[in-house]
Amino acid sequence: MSLEFAFDLLLVLTMVWSAWRSLSATRLDRAIVMFIVFGLLMALAWARLSAPDIGLAEAAIGAGLTGALLLDAYGALQRREI
């Protein structure tokens, strides 16, 4: 088993784990943070698939902007509940 394959395996296991956690976390804010982690791992996966263009876009849009949108929605919900 080469080092590259070992890294890929570790990466995909972490990806599936973070996706699972972001769906199963009991607290919504943790779920959203796990989703941002998942997005950053996706960016790494794109780099491993020799697709740096998608990696850049995923890091900025998939993790950054989507995460900001979700956290903002979560914050607005919390504020309305007060």
Binding site: A19, S22, L23, L28, A31, I32, F35, F38, G39, M42, A45, I54, G62, T66, L70, A73, Y74, L77
Partner: peptide, 17 residues
């Protein structure tokens, strides 16, 4: 619904992969 949106995004990421 927010969790459903998360799940929908994970579905999309899977499709892209």
């Amino acid at each position: 619904l927010l969790r459903r949106i998360l799940a929908f995004n994970i579905m999309g990421s899977g499709t892209f992969l």
